[in-house]
Design a protein around this nucleic acid. Structure first.
Length: 550
RNA sequence: GGCCCGUUGGUGAAGUGGUUUAACACAUAGCCCUCUCAAGGCUACAUUCAUGGGUCCGAAUCCCAUACGGGUCACCA
């Protein structure tokens, strides 16, 4: 009895060999230096910000080197799989315009290195595992959960390293006869990798972010194939897929750093070169006095859908992530305003290796405000329309009914060298311009705060005098403002701020107080864009109705 | 507990032995401008790089120890 017999008992139907697949997936025809990256999420039902963060890096890396960025669905944990997860992942990548060069979705396969779904690659994994068994580097393990628990307890008691290795690996030395017999008896088993490593020995490993690391060799006989569905574990699938798909750069979270010795030994067992690794910092958030990993349950901002619901432009989210990816990004972007983030040369060495990057929503808001302020009004309108259609149907109907009017509102203080920056996302817009719509203005609970002037009669006097005697929709801005000053003079308010400051007692108030009254009377808010523009957009009869409410 | 990674301001961080009196950006505060707000302009914000020791003429930068934070040790990825 030989290992070959064992391999045939375990995989009687596998008739291909490694070479077959190596020939099937030859080296990619790319120019020197082209990087092949992949986004490899497991479909568990939501898209984590951290995964997206990695996808951006993958995309930038591939784009910059004329390489390939592909999507691989890591669905080997069928227990955790959520059906719609794949749709969500694809949709998110589409929303952010980072659709991979190669992927598999809804029976559509793009690219020559598929299948890109791990559950469809079973035969390939089995072929590689069979090879390992044949050369004596993998074996069936019959240990039950209870036995493993017992082993762990023993290890804890004697303060030994935890895990299945060395003398604790009791199935590694079973005779082939016994192995075959137990399999034929229908015993449950997993396949373990037979490690040749020595935990006392160390080797050097280059992580592109952290530099050269000195790590202990792996000596764990890790599970490479699970018992129930015969699918590989992450470690083994990582080796097979990234080898066959010719990934050059693996971008993954730093939680994988401690598995590096395992992965290196796997590549070594097949005599092939491992890819380069970029272990990214985890994205954390402040929690009391400490920081912790962003959690999908506690932190809404951990999920990509959060940004969509609030209506952040996709590019704003990407840009804010870019500032974490490489902090010289902003400087670069200011120096190269016409380029996009895809043109930026990402350098892993410059990436912070700090325990965790704190994702800062304030920063996002700032970036987003700047980006939205540069949109043309009709583009903003289209985006707002798309967003509100899904998340605020009432507002959607309103802006659809008054499309041109809405565009005009959005255009206030926009067509200028330094456009106004007050919309941080689409969901905040309604709260800032609601008063422009009579449907909202006359139906919402309102409270007026006129600032320094609060005598009712005085307020009415100011407003009535202004609209009866001074206001004219045809006026240009300068005339308009001069009339505002005339109004002040006629009612005993200072039209000149300097004069007022020098001699406040001589006046009832100043031009700022008066314009605030008019502003609030029409909008209820003292914080609005340019009053002149606002008044221009509201017809006189609508203005009259608003004055009646005072 | 073993192993691994990390520790510069409120935040992201630049910085790899002297050009650092520690960049840039966000946030915060103040002033200016101003019909409001936003924007913009100006100014302030780490005498110090977790702590302690060492090497050196010179250290945030190199070495050692300690502390603290994180990761990992699953038939999850």
């Amino acid at each position: 009895m030989t290992n070959k017999d064992l391999a045939n008992v375990i995989f009687p139907d596998i008739d291909k060999d490694i070479k077959y697949y190596e020939d099937m997936y030859p080296n990619r025809d790319l120019k020197e230096g082209a990087k092949v990256t992949r986004f490899a999420p497991s479909p568990t039902g939501f898209m984590h910000l951290g995964g997206f963060f990695q996808a951006i890096i993958d995309k930038v890396l591939a784009h910059n080197s004329n390489g390939v960025f592909y999507l691989r669905n890591e669905d080997t944990d069928q227990k955790r799989e959520v059906k719609e997860a794949v749709d969500l992942i694809m949709k998110t990548l589409e929303d952010y315009d980072i659709v991979p060069d190669e992927y598999e979705y809804n029976d559509k396969v793009v690219g020559n290195y598929g299948p890109y779904i791990q559950s469809k690659r079973k035969e390939i994994y089995h072929t590689f595992i069979k090879h390992l068994i044949e050369i004596g580097r993998a074996y069936p393990c019959f240990c039950t959960k209870e036995e493993l628990d017992l082993m762990r307890q023993k290890q804890e008691k004697y303060k030994a390293r935890l895990g299945y290795y060395g003398r604790y690996a009791k199935c590694r030395n079973l005779s082939i006869e016994e192995q075959i017999e137990r399999i034929k008896n229908g015993e449950e088993y997993v396949i373990r990798f037979k490690s040749l490593g020595d935990n006392e020995k160390r080797f050097f490993f280059d992580d592109l972010v952290r530099g050269t690391l000195n790590l202990p060799e792996n000596d764990m006989d890790i599970i490479i194939m699970k018992s129930n569905d015969k699918l590989p574990t992450y470690h083994f699938a990582h080796f097979v897929d990234d080898y066959l798909m010719h990934t050059t750069h693996v971008v993954r979270g730093e939680e994988w750093l401690s598995s590096v010795p395992v992965h290196i030994e796997l590549f070594k067992a097949f005599g092939v070169k491992p890819p380069k690794y970029i272990h990214t910092p985890l994205i954390v958030k402040r929690d009391g006095n400490g920081v912790r990993k962003l959690s999908k349950r506690k932190d809404p901002e951990a999920t990509m859908s959060y940004y969509k619901e609030l209506g952040y432009p996709a590019i704003a989210v990407i840009e804010s992530l870019m500032t974490i990816i490489n902090s010289n990004y902003e400087e670069w972007h200011t120096a190269n305003p016409d380029k996009t983030y895809l043109d930026f040369t990402y350098s892993p060495k410059k990436m912070s290796a700090t325990g965790g990057a704190l994702y800062d929503l304030e920063k996002l808001n700032n970036i987003s405000k700047n980006i939205i302020s540069k949109f043309k009004a009709d583009y903003l309108y289209d985006e707002l329309s798309k967003w509100s259609k899904v998340y605020d149907s009432e507002f959607y109907e309103l802006i659809t009914k008054y499309k041109d009017y809405t565009i005009n509102i959005l255009n206030i203080e926009r067509e200028q060298k330094k456009p106004r920056k007050d919309y941080e996302n689409y969901s905040s817009i309604k709260g800032l311009i609601w008063y422009m719509y009579d449907e909202l203005f006359f139906n919402e609970e309102k409270s007026y705060d006129f600032g320094t002037i609060n005598d009712k009669e005085e307020i009415k006097l100011i407003v009535n005098t202004y609209f009866d005697k001074f206001y004219n929709k045809e006026d240009d801005k300068e005339t308009w403002f001069n009339k505002m000053k005339e109004l002040c003079d006629s009612l005993g308010y200072a039209s000149n701020m300097k004069e007022y400051k020098e001699n406040p007692d001589k006046f009832k108030g100043n031009v700022a107080d008066v314009s605030t009254v008019i502003r609030v009377a029409i909008t209820t808010s003292s914080q609005t864009p340019d009053l002149y523009e606002i008044l221009k957009l509201i017809d006189n009869d609508r203005i009259a109705k608003r004055i009646e409410l005072l």
